[in-house]
Design a binder for these strands. Structure first.
Lengths: 340, 340
DNA sequence: GCCATGGATGACAACGCTGTCAATTTGCTG
DNA sequence: CAGCAAATTGACAGCGTTGTCATCCATGGC
């Protein structure tokens, strides 16, 4: 049995191979009656075009690659969902490619992937999307790509992208904390290899300036986008002579660590300490108290990036697009407790 | 530039196409000197075989599909990682295929996928892996597959699988709670469409029996593998005239909901209430207190399943394999508070 | 010195499909 | 009804690779 080919369909419909091909690819120039006959044959034989053969012959590719190196399952799943949605709609396949962003041979590895698997292009998630050297190499290899990056505005650097305004979002969170009455607001950095980290820091800094709140270096700690760094960072901040009344973690995992540290220290969130995160991961809804955070429409962002890539592959000259995360207020933030 | 073909390599090495093919596929019957010349040409030209052309011609496939319908990002990412590890080692590609397990045309959809994308076979994660009708259809379509399922022992039903003994693991957790001194232990069911749910329930039930602890229907509630059902279920249990002193949630998300409900009710975990989860997701480590749970080596399980599939594709007649989750004791469980 | 043996190599076709271009049919005009 | 353009259809080659089978050459036994 198995797998009818275009040949079988042609025989059954009493037309040439090429006519079947035309019907499949909606090329037009086929009489309605002929088309109907071919359609019928296709259904009777349960025929499905073979993507390998098609892409081999037409020198077009019908799959794209999704490249990431990110330990955050929520983020990755959302990116995958978005990319898949776009791919399915456009009739493309999706090949996922988690990788090590520190690998020295990444450009070759990716070019390899593209060539071997006949990928039409790549969607790059952070932090790969922010390695200029990598981007240049890939472009030199003629690999079409679209990036998802953190930037306050269109970078116009020649590499197409979808950009997310982390700075503005961090500004909004910080401003919200200030408006609640907080004047000592701790900030825990995310990973240095992510461009989003300095962006978020800049937003924090600018809000303090704009509202005339004094900066204090002791309130800002470096770290990574991890629970453990949130925990450790919070412990240090809470051990200060003048501890902060609010802590802004650069993502929800960090904020989760802060929550844990606060509880370990016997503090009641939000009355003794306000905590804010970033990302709106499910964790932020399920923690106790639930986290004030910033909602990134990761799925939509990825879908948009994938659409851009496919449009580019189809030869379009497409514009970059920007997204702004939005503030989500939940139970982990409140006005500071009046000085006793 | 672009993408040398086997033809270029043959020209450069002054041999025939076929000889290059032999070298690439390690077929033997090539003189060392010739092989070296070809190798050199391959490196110089940076040649990579085209998987589409190869699979087209050889009627073999070099990619497998991973099919799942599961809202839990931690689980999915772990399964993907495991499957990818096996695929990379064996030179296979991986195509992910999230889908709706309730779709009536799933079998056709999957057969379609296999055919169009020339997949060598499918790895099925729960709950798809437990739909006998689906399995039968796929086998009728000649689709090689391996399942990941929940079962206390090798089902020997003709469909190859990797089976995870959820029952024994749930038994271990329940027994542990009993040994701590608990006699009223609530149980919150997972999703009915997952075979793991009744398995976990059976483990709970058996432990109560074996230890001579009275069953009480009011302590057992149905639900889904979700935070919200954990929250609602816990509220109901805690509102009973004789509330439980411990609650066993069928997974970590449910347990997270229980934690939240306990806190909303002013209870201190673990002193007023012990809580246990299942899965060892990162959440279980990052919650406060961290959750006593059952560690499933999801990544290894998926890798094993993928290996089995590839072995089967290569014509091997392989044995099913079993995994037993292991008890992880953390801060959310303690002896019950003495009656006041 | 001759032939059987077997290892190394190559020529050629074909996998399933689409691009090119030529052949055929259709429809329209005068 | 001839004449011509446009619409429709088909023959054929070839994408990059491997399977089949034929060919070539060195070796060794008699």
């Amino acid at each position: 049995m198995g797998t009818a080919t275009i040949r079988d369909v042609a025989r059954q419909a009493r037309v040439s191979l090429k006519t079947v091909s035309r019907v499949i690819n909606q090329e037009g120039s086929v009489r309605d009656e002929t088309r109907a006959r071919v359609q019928r044959a296709i259904e009777q034989l349960d025929y499905r075009p073979d993507l390998s053969a098609r892409s081999l012959r037409s020198a077009k590719a019908y799959a794209i690659g999704l490249v990431y190196d990110n330990p955050n399952p929520y983020y990755i799943i959302a990116v995958q969902q978005g990319a898949l949605a776009a791919c399915r709609e456009m009739g493309f396949g999706l090949q996922i490619h988690p990788c090590n962003s520190r690998s020295p041979h990444l450009a070759e590895e990716l070019r390899d992937l593209v060539h071997r698997s006949r990928l039409a292009g790549l969607v790059l998630a952070p932090p790969m999307s922010e390695r200029m050297a990598l981007l240049r190499e890939l472009v030199a290899y003629n690999v079409p790509l679209v990036r998802i990056i953190s930037a306050a505005e269109d970078p116009r650097d020649g590499f197409p992208c979808v950009f997310v305004d982390d700075r503005d979002a961090a500004y909004a969170i910080t401003a919200y904390l200030i408006q609640l009455g907080h004047e000592r607001i701790g900030f825990l950095w995310g990973g240095k290899q992510h461009r989003s980290s300095p962006e978020r820091y800049k937003g924090y800094e600018k809000a303090l300036q704009d509202y005339g709140v004094a900066m204090s270096n002791e309130l800002v700690l470096e770290g990574d986008y991890s629970f453990d760094d949130g925990f450790r960072g919070a412990r240090r901040l809470l051990g200060l002579a003048k501890p902060p009344t609010a802590i802004f973690g650069s993502n929800d995992e960090i904020a989760a660590g802060v929550l844990a540290a606060a509880r370990a220290g016997g503090l009641h969130v939000p009355y003794d300490l306000s905590v804010a995160g970033f990302e709106d991961s499910p964790f932020s809804r399920h923690s106790w108290p639930s986290l004030t955070t910033s909602r990134q429409r990761t799925e939509q962002i990825a879908e948009c990036a994938t659409r851009l890539l496919i449009a580019r592959i189809h030869g379009g000259d497409v514009e970059n697009e920007g997204f702004s995360p939005e503030l989500v207020v939940r139970g982990s933030t409140a006005p500071p407790r009046p000085r006793s």
